[in-house]
Design a protein around this nucleic acid. Structure first.
Lengths: 345, 345
DNA sequence: TTGTAGGCGTTATCAT
DNA sequence: ATGATAACGCCTACAA
């Protein structure tokens, strides 16, 4: 039961009759160590089951090879894709991941940030909670020049890089698509527009309306928490509208789905009565009947880009002088839920 | 730009004209330090922005306050619930999480295990990949008495605790439900029965058939990877069956959904022609038409239980002598997809 | 090409 | 109730 004693570079040094320094250097492939010695060291290390002590190294180097991740929630298709992407890129470079979810609460976000800070993560990847009003809880990081990269749910800040899609353009395309299908009264279901993603989607929606000379109506914007239940709630609001709207553009798919299901229950036909477009390309869009037109963007890629960017900064490979925004591609995926005109594919 | 120098217990000690030892003890609420001194220390620490150095402490204590998690994939409703549960319980106790996904590959699982081991996690929570044949890649942990707890996808092992539901019983209930709805020819779609969850579900399926004197037919068991696409494939196999089966029990929901969608496309009515039961209670079960009957079990709770169990072991609060299995509750959720008889609710 | 010495920040042990 | 010291394992000047 007694834990086998951990093998250290000193143990290796002793057996080889050389100094620990040499072992340390050999293990790091330091140029001043002869190939022969290196090989001897590597072989013995392997044989003795040596593993480098992360903490001793961190303590010494003031560097942990760990990246912190804070996201609103883990359990969405988009977020788990992002995390998978981060994980791949990080693992490739020998970084570990420390993950926390804010559950859409800025308070929990702040607490997690603190924990990450205390754990001395080398850098942070963050997607903000709904209600985070400012970046105050990351000030520790900024003060110590620990890089923080925001993705998707971002906030402008001189000390950080943002990685996201062009939400305005995507929303513009979605709305234009509905208009081209013959919709004039288009409802937009979204979240509080404190967060960039929702603010920009609203902007794109408005711009599309404006370009087609459709008057923007405040009462056509429904603010929710974007849950599926909220979508069902929104359906009630929609059903009360005097002339029913002809289209709905929802800022995410679960909410669109909740709304569609509730409307269908009341006998509304989709897309004939009301056409739908969602956002995110969640798998559920291909399950619901009719399949949901949506905006697709690769979370996996966002994750990879974010992680690579962070790591290259950490390695000193890249030097980001100030604010830096990276825009990734998104795409409108047209499915049956928005096709009022036959043959329009 | 120069990073502010980190505050250490020495800095505090100097200012207070006491020793670092006293500061260390004061910060830990050690009983031999006077209340007054403790207060002075705490106040100054706060004021100077002291934060304890995780690594120095880990180095000293041989303990990292970090738990490793390895799961097949992050992006399922069940898994993200589990992780949320783990996160809550772990955070409460001051533990951080190191997360990796095996992507259903035992090779990647082994690599992650190695990384976790090198990161000196205090314990490991694991749900195994489809194809993991044995626990060899965790032997390092066993040898050093680092606790490894398996959940959901487990494997018997003398050195570990397993946390899961009674898959046999759940599958029995699911199958019996179909039988009670009048189904006699029931297809079971599942994954290779190397993993306990699928083996036990198959067993429960067989037992239910047997109890109702229905002969088990090998060709009614379809082995897949349980993806939605695999479900669509399985639909083709089902359509070729001479008398169509009257019911399908799938070992997870996405596969059931893929199969249902494909069958519906071919004009099969659900549940009239073929009744369906899935497994997991994924959100998609409430979206598909008709809603899918399924087995529900709280991932969040499994996560909490797993984390608490691990942490209490780490704290020496509990001493698990040998193999230990914890069975959590699961429940059959009856929805339209399986209700052949009207009024049967 | 290799070795010596000191320190990263903390805590346990043994004094006082 | 408090302190001095050593050690956790590693790395980097500086020396040889």
């Amino acid at each position: 039961m007694a834990n086998a004693k951990e093998v250290t570079i000193y143990d290796i040094a002793k057996r080889l009759n050389i100094s620990a320094t040499t072992v340390s250097r050999g293990l790091q492939d330091h140029p001043t160590i002869s190939g022969k010695t290196k090989k001897k060291i590597a072989d013995l290390a392997e044989q003795m089951g040596y593993r480098s002590n992360h903490f001793a190294r961190s303590l010494r180097n003031q560097k942990t090879n760990t990246i912190g991740i804070i996201v609103p929630r883990l359990n969405s298709h988009f977020m788990s894709s992002v995390i998978a992407g981060i994980e791949e890129a990080a693992n490739e470079q020998g970084y570990s991941l420390l993950i926390a979810q804010s559950s859409e609460s800025s308070v929990k976000e702040a607490a997690s940030a603190r924990t990450m800070f205390d754990s001395r993560v080398d850098g942070l990847l963050v997607s903000l909670a709904f209600d985070t009003p400012d970046l105050g809880h990351f000030s520790h990081f900024f003060k110590k020049d620990i890089p923080v990269i925001f993705f998707d749910r971002v906030m402008e800040h001189e000390n950080s890089t943002n990685i996201l899609i062009d939400n305005r353009q995507a929303a513009f395309n979605a709305t234009r698509h509905l208009i081209e299908q013959g919709c004039r009264r288009i409802v937009h279901i979204t979240a509080p527009t404190l967060r960039n993603v929702y603010k920009d989607r609203l902007k794109g929606y408005k711009e599309a309306l404006s370009q087609y000379k459709i008057k923007f109506r405040e009462d056509h914007v429904i603010i929710t928490d974007l849950s599926q239940e909220a979508g069902a709630e929104a359906a009630k609001t929609i059903l009360k509208m005097k002339p029913l709207p002809e289209g709905v553009f929802a800022a995410n798919d679960s909410c669109a789905v909740g709304c569609m299901l509730a409307l269908k229950e009341r006998g509304i036909r989709i897309p004939e009565d009301i056409a739908f477009v969602g956002f995110n390309n969640d798998p559920v869009t291909g399950v619901i009947d009719p399949h949901l037109t949506t905006i697709s963007y690769r979370g996996y890629e966002i994750g990879q880009v974010a992680a690579r960017h962070l790591i290259s900064y950490l390695s000193g490979t890249s030097h980001v002088s100030s604010t830096n925004t990276i825009i990734l591609r998104s795409e409108l995926i047209v499915r049956a839920s928005s096709l009022k005109k036959a043959g329009n594919k």
